Simulated assay, not measured.
Amino acid sequence: MKSRYEYELENGGTAFGAYAGDKLIGFGVLAHKFRGKEHDQLQIDLLYVTRNYRRQGIGSRIIEQLSKAAIEKGAKYLYISSTETESAVNFYSSCGSTITSEVDQELFEKEPYDIHLIKRL
């Protein structure tokens, strides 16, 4: 079975990695499928930073790169389906995201406990 990462990259998604030397310590994946009523949203499909490297601005820099890539593809918003942890939601909020009033039904059905946010680009 293909990983989400492989699927997205093979279908036009974009990925960025953060490294400490040759060690991957964080990554982000921008999905390829446009979402929203206006088809102007691209989803952050994956975002992860290794625990020992958190709270150092790495996740924020990955979000910046994903945002630039989304703008280049024509998106006006990032759609984020975040784990419901307070730290994850606070992180996305600190990057300019807000809870969306238009939840993507497909993503909600996959992860019904996630918090759905949107970030204007």
Rank of each mutant, 00 (worst) to 15 (best):
A31Y: 12
E84K: 13
I63T: 15
H39W: 00
H32C: 13
L9I: 14
T50P: 00
C95Q: 14
H39A: 00
A20L: 13
Y7H: 06
A20R: 13
G26L: 11
K23Q: 09
E84R: 14
R54T: 10
E84C: 13
V89F: 00
I58T: 10
V29G: 05
T14G: 07
G21D: 01
H116G: 05
E72V: 00
M1Q: 03
E6K: 14
S93E: 14
T98A: 15
E102A: 09
F27A: 01
T14F: 15
N52W: 00
A75L: 05
G28E: 02
T98N: 15
G74C: 06
I99A: 13
L24S: 02
R35V: 01
T100L: 13
F27Q: 00
G17L: 01
L42N: 05
K110C: 11
L66C: 05
R54L: 01
A31F: 10
A31D: 15
I99K: 15
E64F: 09
Q105H: 01
R4W: 06
L121A: 01
V89H: 00
Y79D: 03
L107A: 14
A69H: 08
I63P: 15
I115N: 08
G28L: 04
N52A: 08
Q105K: 03
E10K: 12
G21F: 02
G17H: 00
E111H: 06
G26V: 10
I25H: 00
I115T: 14
R51G: 08
E8Q: 15
M1G: 11
N90I: 03
A88I: 11
L78W: 06
L107T: 08
R54N: 01
R4L: 12
G59R: 13
K23F: 04
S3E: 10
Y79W: 04
S94L: 04
G57P: 13
S67M: 07
I115P: 07
R120M: 05
S87H: 11
A15E: 14
L121N: 12
V29W: 05
K119W: 06
L47D: 09
K76Y: 05
E72S: 02
K68M: 07
V103Q: 01
T100P: 14
I115A: 10
Y7V: 05
I44T: 13
Q105A: 03
G28W: 03
E72R: 02
S87A: 12
I118G: 08
E111Q: 03
G26P: 09
S101W: 00
A18N: 12
Y48W: 07
E38Y: 08
L117F: 05
D104N: 08
K119F: 06
P112F: 09
A88P: 09
I115F: 09
Y92P: 12
E64Q: 14
E102K: 10
L46G: 00
Y79K: 02
E102Y: 08
T50G: 08
F16Y: 11
L9R: 11
T50L: 13
Y77F: 14
V29F: 05
Y7K: 07
L42P: 07
R120E: 10
D22Y: 04
A70Q: 02
C95I: 04
R51P: 08
G13P: 02
T98M: 15
F108W: 11
K23G: 02
I118M: 14
L46W: 03
R61M: 14
Y7N: 05
E64A: 14
S3K: 10
K23A: 06
G74F: 07
Q65Y: 11
L47I: 15
Y5K: 11
F34K: 06
L42R: 08
K33C: 06
K73Q: 05
A18F: 12
L121V: 01
G96A: 04
